[in-house]
Design a protein around this nucleic acid. Structure first.
Lengths: 169, 169
DNA sequence: TTGGAAAGTCAACAAGGCTGACATAAAATC
DNA sequence: GATTTTATGTCAGCCTTGTTGACTTTCCAA
């Protein structure tokens, strides 16, 4: 690897934030994100769904009973955009939309058994890659990976990420 | 932070690869990538360009004189898709396309001064975020960040990433 | 000289973003 | 009780950026 840049050579060197180092990080994000989405995309390509469907199913699976508005703020898209995706998922019997009991304006979203199956297939594929990457890099690297990613998020998104983190732990 | 999951508590714990840990990594990638692209997107939004233009300019800046075919394999899109982007960049005087000297079929791509200016504005914004994230997470975390991302890439993309890495170092 | 690779172009299409306008039901407020 | 706000859904239309397929031009090399 021979990292550490122009500093005293790796380890606890000073902040080795040359433009070169930063550029490598940027390109690493670019290439890694392609790998990150490649496996689910392959599965989705065979069906009539896309990445947007995957994202919706992921967060519905993660927070069953979440409302449309909540999902909207997590995904960061317009309701028209989300609705198009959600409609097809509901029509195809992958997602169920239940009217809220306390507030009947709200729709609570759940994966059906069929939806759960697809979500599992997709996340199995994505997890397999993530697992392999974690194994290859080692536990210490995983720690750093998560720290940098978290620091890279917009503050608002970081809050949502952390809320999700707690909720699932 | 209190990481380390269900293992013996952080540090060199065994492979703590629970589905929960993996899912957090997946969501971290999702939220972080949004932050990663947010700043350039804001700049591009004001102009008539999109993320695809940014990517093309980034890699032309990075490897001046690269051929269209080379760029194609780095970006992983079809030549029609790239060509549309490239055409507007050339028309607008941001990119120059020179016929190859040894192989006149090839077009070698260069940023014009105008193109260099925009590229710098975009990458300055992106680097600023990356720098802040690196600073917040610390040198050791940066090491891990890069290791995990590299392990997450498809083998072919990893090779391209590493080639770029060497070329620029 | 002819085959094939590199590059470019045109047409058509799809996914998934976006805005704006509007409808409905229910909750909240006055 | 009337009004306003909120949550959701929907229609129409637009943009970017990806796709496939068909075709042309250029030009290297066998």
């Amino acid at each position: 690897m021979a990292e550490g840049g122009p500093g005293p050579g790796g380890g606890e060197s000073l902040l080795f934030l040359t433009d070169e180092q930063l550029r490598k990080g940027i390109e690493a994000m670019f290439f890694a994100y392609r790998g990150f989405t490649a496996d689910p995309d392959r599965i989705l390509g065979d069906l009539d769904y896309g990445r947007a469907h995957h994202r919706a199913m992921h967060f519905i699976h993660r927070s069953p009973g979440t409302t449309v508005n909540n999902l909207l703020s997590i995904l960061g898209v317009t309701k028209q955009s989300l609705n198009r995706v959600l409609r097809t998922l509901i029509e195809d019997g992958l997602v169920e939309s239940r009217v809220g009991r306390v507030d009947k304006r709200e729709r609570h979203l759940y994966l059906t058994p069929k939806g759960t199956d697809l979500e599992r297939a997709l996340s199995d594929a994505q997890r397999a890659r993530m697992r392999a990457a974690y194994r290859a890099a080692g536990p210490a690297a995983v720690q750093g990976f998560r720290q940098v990613l978290e620091a890279m998020m917009d503050p608002e998104l970081r809050r949502q990420y952390q809320t999700l983190k707690e909720g699932g732990a």
